[in-house]
């Protein structure tokens, strides 16, 4: 997971890979992420042919189908710009699993590896590459943070998100019990093992709510839909917000860092 971040000038252009979930289910989060990038003076390119990283098929054991989908994404990023993904699990898929998916084809493997090297999860990009300097706007707030498991273990997102929130000054991050535990989403797991999944999602919702935070934030659409859907079914008004949206609505730039 330790990643070497190239020093050098700030990138002027990036690609945005929205992921199928953000595109269809939480587009505002994608919009807010793009606006945050633009606020940093970066041109954001949205390849129109993007669909999905292929993860649902890959993790279900349908490697051929995952490859077919991934194959299309491989060609979308011709320039050597960073590729920003507003989801740790999809970012992890491209970064860690694409090279394995194309291991048998020399040319495609090289392509996958090159892509893998410039894929960044959104908060990672802000903290590690742009080294942003933001401050909170508006009233002070208390939030809890849930990080998806693949984002945590494959991308270190929990650390990056914490670092961003800590900058803001007026946002207090409240820790919840069993913070590193999975919310029970797991893609098709939620459908295949509904009872176990419900138990996990319920516990996660409880733990987040018990912090007394006004809302929770997460950088992963899947987890958000899982936990929010659980809360809504319970007719509970506590909710989560995509971290990108939270940041867009509650921060402003605080000048360049040295």
């Amino acid at each position: 997971m330790d990643r070497h971040y190239p020093a050098g000038p700030r990138p002027t252009d990036v690609y945005f890979f929205a992921t199928c979930l953000v595109d269809l289910f939480c587009p505002e989060a994608g919009m807010d992420a793009i606006q945050l990038l633009e606020r940093e003076g970066i041109r954001v390119h949205f390849p129109a042919d993007q669909t999905c990283c292929g993860q649902p098929a890959y993790t279900s054991g349908y490697a051929d189908q995952a490859r077919a989908v991934a194959r299309v994404q491989l060609d979308l990023f011709p320039n050597d710009w960073p590729v920003i993904v507003p989801s740790g699990s999809c970012g992890g898929m491209i970064r860690h699993h694409y090279p394995k998916l194309f291991a048998d084809d020399v040319a495609l493997k090289a392509k996958a590896e090159a892509l893998s090297g410039r894929v960044f999860e959104l908060t990672e990009f802000f903290v590690k590459v742009l080294k942003v300097n933001w401050k909170g706007s508006g009233n002070s707030k208390k939030v809890a943070l849930h990080t998806s498991c693949s984002a945590r273990r494959e991308m270190g997102t929990h650390l990056h998100a914490r670092e961003l929130l800590a900058q803001l000054g007026n946002v207090e991050l409240l820790n919840h019990s069993h913070e590193s535990e999975c919310c029970g989403f797991g893609g098709t797991f939620a459908v295949r093992q509904p009872d176990i999944s419900a138990s996990m999602a319920g516990d996660k919702a409880d733990a987040l709510k018990e912090t007394g935070a006004e809302k929770f934030v997460s950088a992963d659409g899947g987890c958000l839909m899982n936990i929010d859907g659980t809360l809504e079914k319970r007719r509970d008004s506590f909710r989560g917000e995509h971290l990108a949206s939270f940041l867009w609505h509650n921060t402003e730039r605080a000048g360049e860092k040295e």
């Binding site: 269809l24 289910f25 939480c26 587009p27 505002e28 939620a190 459908v191 295949r192 093992q193 509904p194 009872d195 999944s197 419900a198 999602a201 319920g202 839909m225 899982n226 859907g229 659980t230 809504e232 079914k233």
Partner: peptide, 12 residues
């Protein structure tokens, strides 16, 4: 299984 414990997923 999704809606057993969650509200339905609805596109934006």
């Amino acid at each position: 299984g999704w809606t057993k414990s969650r509200t339905p997923l609805t596109p934006a």
